[in-house]
Nucleic acid binder design. Structure first.
Ligand code: MN
Ligand code: MN
Length: 305
DNA sequence: GGGGCGA
DNA sequence: TCGCCCCAACGCCGG
DNA sequence: CCGGCG
């Protein structure tokens, strides 16, 4: 057992040498090192956001579990927030310091998923996510879908940001001013998805039924709802190679060199050292969904005339 | 990873 | 003392 | 209302 100190807090680390990614020999100690080092970049995406933990105490080759309710035995300095659910409430972890991230990593939390809203206004998302899910292999169509999504948003002066998920797809993310609730945001997102699928019916679909997708990319906006989550920027994924969800610049998507597993625990720091935060302007560019929806309506009218 | 519980 | 179990359930949508 | 989906 070893100890790591974070200011006045001490985290007991158990079994640093335990392999969590046996294929690559990546250990729990490596995971903790990673999250320690990435905390400063991750911080703005963690702040005030209820978390869902994806834990793999016996490594990614064994089954893991999701954890929402913070365990009784978590230290008292781990902050939690009470959220309402169908039949009562739950206390979810909120990460407000590096020590929390280190503790969660020691608990074999490989991936962190976050609500799209923050604790002070849980019904009003601060980001809209267009989740592009390929139904077959090949990343080029996903990159193209993301660029088409950005293009549509550009047409109505809505800023957009893109990240790899570390899995198979991409997320296109729009920062919101939180004046609109989930129902309004989702209605707008569904409108966007519908237009995209209409423009590119051979490549994109909004069909929920897998069988009806026919190999096309699923433009999933269903995550824009209360208590739903998306993988957080810089989260590791429980997949071979220890891939990471990484914010990108749009020109990187245009160049077409990025693959879903381009960034991993093992190579992300080269990038962080060389590249400034591609989402640096995220907060500055928050928008009103109500106004954006109005611009989308106007545009549709002028196009049919 | 760690607590609770029944054998 | 040891082995086993638990650790999320929810919200939306189309039919 | 059910079942599928993520
Ligand atoms: Mn996805
Ligand atoms: Mn999805």
């Amino acid at each position: 057992m070893s100890l790591r100190r974070y200011g006045s807090l001490t985290v007991e680390i158990s079994r640093e040498e335990k392999p969590l990614f046996p294929g690559e020999g990546i250990t729990k100690g490596d995971l903790i090192d990673y999250y320690e080092a990435v905390y400063d970049r991750m911080r703005s995406h963690l702040e005030d956001r209820p978390l869902v933990l994806r834990r793999f105490p016996d490594g990614i080759e064994k089954s893991g579990f999701y954890q929402k309710q913070a365990a009784e035995h978590f230290p008292d300095w781990i902050r939690t927030t009470r959220v309402q659910k169908q039949n009562g409430h739950q206390d979810l972890v909120v990460c407000d310091k590096k020590a929390t991230l280190a503790f969660l990593a020691d608990q074999a939390t490989i991936a962190l998923h976050g609500w799209l809203s923050r604790e002070d206004r849980p019904d009003n998302p601060d980001r809209l996510v267009v989740d592009l899910d390929p139904s077959k292999d090949g990343f080029a169509p996903v990159r193209r879908a993301a660029l088409r999504c950005r293009e549509l948003l550009d047409e109505i002066d809505v800023p957009s940001f893109v990240k790899t998920t570390g899995s198979r797809g991409l997320h296109v993310v729009v920062p919101l001013d939180r004046r609109a609730d989930f129902d309004s945001v989702r209605a707008f997102a569904r409108e966007l998805a519908g237009i995209l699928a209409e423009r590119f019916p051979d490549d994109l679909t909004i069909e929920q039924r897998k069988r009806k997708r026919r190999g096309r990319i699923y433009v999933d906006v269903g995550r824009n709802a209360y208590a739903q989550t998306a993988v957080l920027p810089y989260s590791v994924r429980a997949r071979p190679g220890a891939p990471v969800a990484v914010p990108l610049r749009w020109d990187e998507v245009e160049r077409g060199r990025i693959e879903p597993d381009s960034f991993t625990i093992g190579n992300l720091f080269r990038r962080l050292a060389r590249t400034e935060d591609p989402w640096r302007s995220f907060r500055r560019r928050r928008i009103s969904v109500t106004k954006a929806a109005r611009r989308l309506e106007n545009r549709k009218e002028e196009q049919q005339s």
